[in-house]
Computed example of a mutant assay.
Amino acid sequence: MKTRTRIAAITAAGIVAAGAFAGTVALATASPPMSGPGPGHGPVTTPRGGPRDGGCLAVPGITDPSGTLTEVQRTALAANAEEEKLAHDLYTEFARRYDTPVFDHIAASETTHLEAVRTLLSRYGITDPTANQAPGKFATPAVQATYDRLLAQGAANQDAALEAGRAVETADIALLRESLGGLTAPDVQRVYGSLLTASQRHLAAFDRWLSR
């Protein structure tokens, strides 16, 4: 459970203060998107909305072969599912409150991201912690607390909601980078690579809205 504890700490740090995750944002954006074959590439489609509104490349179909996952990597995969659900549920709620297309567009992207992670969970026989969970509800107490805190933060005004989105994407980037370390399973590498690129684009979209 050490990995899940680290994940909760990363997420919590992103909520406490913008300065806490600014360094992670810099790390995530320092490396340009990969080109050519490799994790995060393959057939892609472009969902509605341009870059300013959170549009990004969809996760490609999972056609790579399976590999072997350690127990830590299996735990991280389940944690990534909860992170994707948190992002989806939070942005969906903000989309109801604010007439800002970035929330609606990124929430749609998070739907495809969660389905990709769920496909991997099924492949590797890992229990899906997001199964049968209602919107805004999570199996892991730390994730539930994170969602509740971010939802309350975003209820203040639109900019506060955009800052909450930045915190989520920064935490996602940190989690995905950690999850990719030592990973050898081709199918999981590809999905994580795609999710990392998507989170970088989402973060950039929130930054553009905040600097408008």
Rank of each mutant, 00 (worst) to 15 (best):
T119D: 11
D207M: 07
G23K: 01
V143K: 04
A167Y: 12
L150Q: 01
E82Y: 07
F138A: 06
A134T: 13
T68G: 03
H202W: 00
V191L: 00
G125L: 13
L162H: 01
S31W: 14
A205P: 06
E169L: 01
T170P: 01
G36M: 11
T5F: 08
G49R: 05
R96V: 00
I126T: 11
V117N: 03
A30T: 04
T140H: 11
S194Q: 09
A160S: 13
E84K: 10
S31L: 15
Q153S: 04
A95P: 00
E110F: 02
T140Q: 13
D99N: 15
F103T: 06
V188W: 08
W209L: 12
A30V: 02
V59S: 11
L175Y: 11
T197H: 14
R177Y: 04
T68Q: 08
R4F: 15
V59G: 02
Y124E: 04
D159L: 03
L203A: 05
A205I: 08
P141K: 08
A198Q: 14
T140R: 14
P33W: 14
D104G: 14
V72Y: 09
E178I: 12
A167R: 10
H41R: 15
W209K: 07
T63M: 06
G23R: 01
S109I: 06
A160Y: 10
H88G: 02
A167L: 10
A198W: 11
R48V: 12
A76H: 05
T100G: 03
I62W: 02
T146G: 14
A155V: 01
L121Y: 13
P43I: 09
L150Y: 00
A22I: 00
I15C: 01
T130V: 05
I62T: 05
D89S: 05
A95L: 01
G193S: 06
T46I: 01
A185F: 09
L114A: 09
A30K: 10
A76N: 10
P129S: 04
D187C: 03
S179A: 15
D89G: 08
S194W: 08
P33T: 15
A79I: 00
P47M: 00
I15V: 01
R166W: 05
E93M: 07
E84F: 12
A171V: 05
R177V: 08
I126A: 11
D148G: 02
T100R: 08
T184L: 09
L175I: 10
S179E: 09
I7R: 15
E93I: 02
L121C: 15
A20N: 14
G125D: 14
R52E: 12
Q144E: 04
G50R: 03
G165I: 02
L69P: 01
T100N: 11
A26H: 06
G154A: 07
A9R: 05
I7P: 03
L196S: 04
L180Q: 14
L77C: 00
T24R: 15
A107S: 07
D148T: 04
W209T: 07
T127S: 13
L121F: 15
D64H: 02
R97V: 03
A145Q: 14
A142F: 00
A205K: 06
Q158P: 10
P51C: 13
V25E: 15
N157I: 09
A76M: 12
H105M: 11
G36D: 13
Q200N: 14
K2Y: 08
Y124W: 06
I7V: 14
P32Y: 09
L183D: 01
K137Y: 00
T68I: 10
A155T: 05
G38V: 03
S35Q: 14
A139P: 01
L196D: 07
